[in-house]
Design a protein around this nucleic acid. Structure first.
Lengths: 145, 145
DNA sequence: ATGAGTGCAAAGGCTTTGCATTAGG
DNA sequence: CCTAATGCAAAGCCTTTGCACTCAT
């Protein structure tokens, strides 16, 4: 996935919602792309000191509303944000219970397909309209072991 | 799972950690058992008006530390708590994006086994020490559709 | 020009904590 | 008895919001 492609996609998503792709928003998206995995607001601010905290919070709301960013809530104190799966592909999260770090991983298409099938079956029985699923692997990361 | 059994197990967990199973804690556990699925603190307080908010927060911390209760964080404003899987069995969550409600479901052992296998493989490659996994089905519940 | 976006500071709201009181063992 | 637990109120902390200023179109 090239840099310009991602940027174009974000631009398109914003345009659809009559939102501007300002320099602050570009810097924010750039920061999210630099981090490997979901990032907290403090991490984002540390990565780009030119960003203002309140604008980052506000722009992450906007970017999430247009479908460019996903907010991830763990048991850590801070919420985390990453580029949406539409831009990066479907994946899951490794969550470290020691340091809070979150990183991405993907299942094989075969496993993912079977999981989907099982979940659709559950949803049907519960009369639940599925929007998606979330699968996290919880444990201790390599750095913390 | 009978009432007394659950209570005995909680009592044992607390005793191991040199914690008392006071009347407040018994009422809290009773409230958690009455609700079907993870509950927020406001829901717990509404269910048992005799409980004090700060004690509930504190006791949920204790009960979680001894492994009797699990805290679940969603995108809702409130955290949710339920009896730990050791007491209730392994299960997953249906999360309603409309009302925030969380309810439980289980996968078939076969699907669960294959999922475990796939996750162990991922963990090995990432040198990640697995403590468990979390699988949520996100969508709109029957009541909100 | 003119409304969206920005940045600073203050307010909100869930959760935690201090402290005096009560109760468990 | 004597320490852990409780309850009320106040403080903490992440996040949101008000408001004046700036920038994009």
């Amino acid at each position: 996935m090239s840099t310009d492609t991602t940027d174009d996609e974000v631009a398109a998503l914003l345009r659809t919602a009559d939102q501007r792709y300002t320099s602050g928003r570009r810097r924010l998206v750039a920061a999210l792309r630099r981090g490997d995995g979901p990032m907290t607001i403090p991490q984002i601010l540390e990565l780009d000191g030119a960003l203002a905290q309140s604008s980052v919070y506000r722009n992450l709301v906007v970017l999430e509303e247009v479908g460019a960013v996903t907010r991830i809530v763990t048991r850590d104190d801070f919420a985390r944000y990453e580029l949406a799966e539409d831009l990066t592909g479907h994946h899951h999260h490794l969550i470290c219970t020691s340091c809070g770090q979150v990183s991405d991983f993907a299942l094989t298409p075969a496993v993912e397909a079977e999981l989907d099938k099982a979940l659709r079956s559950v949803a049907r029985r519960s009369r639940f309209a599925v929007e998606g699923h979330r699968l996290d692997l919880v444990g201790v990361c390599a750095d913390c072991r």
